[in-house]
Design a protein around this nucleic acid. Sequence first.
DNA 1: GTCTATAAAGCGATAGAC
DNA 2: GTCTATCGCTTTATAGAC
Lengths: 204, 204
Amino acid sequence: MSKPLSGRKPSAKREAILDAAQVVFLDVGYAAASMDGVAARAGVSKATIYAHFTSKDQLFSAVIQRRCERSEAFQSIDSQGDVRAVLTGVARRLMTLLLSPEALAMYRLVVAESLRQPDLARAFYDSGPAAGKAQIAAIMADLADRGELVLDDPWVAADQFIGLLRTDLFMRTLLGLPLRDGQTLDGVTVGAVDVILRAFGPKR
Amino acid sequence: MSKPLSGRKPSAKREAILDAAQVVFLDVGYAAASMDGVAARAGVSKATIYAHFTSKDQLFSAVIQRRCERSEAFQSIDSQGDVRAVLTGVARRLMTLLLSPEALAMYRLVVAESLRQPDLARAFYDSGPAAGKAQIAAIMADLADRGELVLDDPWVAADQFIGLLRTDLFMRTLLGLPLRDGQTLDGVTVGAVDVILRAFGPKR
DNA sequence: GTCTATAAAGCGATAGAC
DNA sequence: GTCTATCGCTTTATAGAC
């Protein structure tokens, strides 16, 4: 009972190393991160890291994989209620997630390394963009069933909805540039919902 | 006359270095690129590089700046003709540009380094996303003037149009993942134009 | 498992000859 | 301007004591 039911070992040091590595990698990028830096932040010696992970590559991989497994996208959203309200709620949540510093750092890191670490690109895509799109497609399919939207393909519509949210505001934030005057999360959200409703709303 | 009208010197070696550096940086990323590697590819010695550029940082900066200056976005598109045809032409050009291997490599690189090199992020943004958006906004404003579109703000509409093009297809290509069956440039293009026309077309 | 100490290699940048 | 050769430092990874 006191024994943790471990298929895997949740060794405290191992977790500390992963936590530290996540901070360092997300902060300075893969190449610029050093094992010394990770060791210092984790409060262990470098040799201890190599007792748990065979290489820097594998440590990096473990960090991203763990991060992907933990991401729950955005939890249950009920698709009940006014179409506009539902879509606005979804959009606001997605925008908040996309613009969070951690998600942006993760995106920068994975995009940069995607060609050299295809497994990570896949893990990120599946647990991030693909999972989010699936949730939104399900909601839009619900709305279509209720006659609140008229859709050929909810997956395509979800894709387009997300695209309408990842616009200039996202790009500027991603690049660390200041926002334009009047460029707000709510503005983009409302604009995207307006377009979707005009394109797919029932009363045309 | 034989003398090139140089405010700047188009020294052959200098150009060779810049060409080589561009290939290396876009290929392996900033941190993983080595001055030895650039020197080897350029066919010069490392010392020669440092005769032309003060540091690795500055060489990198020069590469990106030059690349940004040369990008002409997409040259003149006439906004004459059928609305759908104009929008489709614009969309197809932008998609082709966005999905080109060089543009993707550039995007990966700049995104990864944006926080550590804010000047580059700015240069990239101005000559890439911002320039493209300006051209598309101008075209959409033309269409609105002709009564072919009904727009509150052509800049917002251009932003949304671009967002509708940077969807899952772009993400998968960016991450080096295979495309889904039936996921095509033309499909995304047509879908985006459809949404824009339904949202902003005159006959609602 | 965890540490200290160190090996082995690669890096950015420079000196000095030509 | 361009080269060869090298400095001084940091890096990943490992040996060996405990």
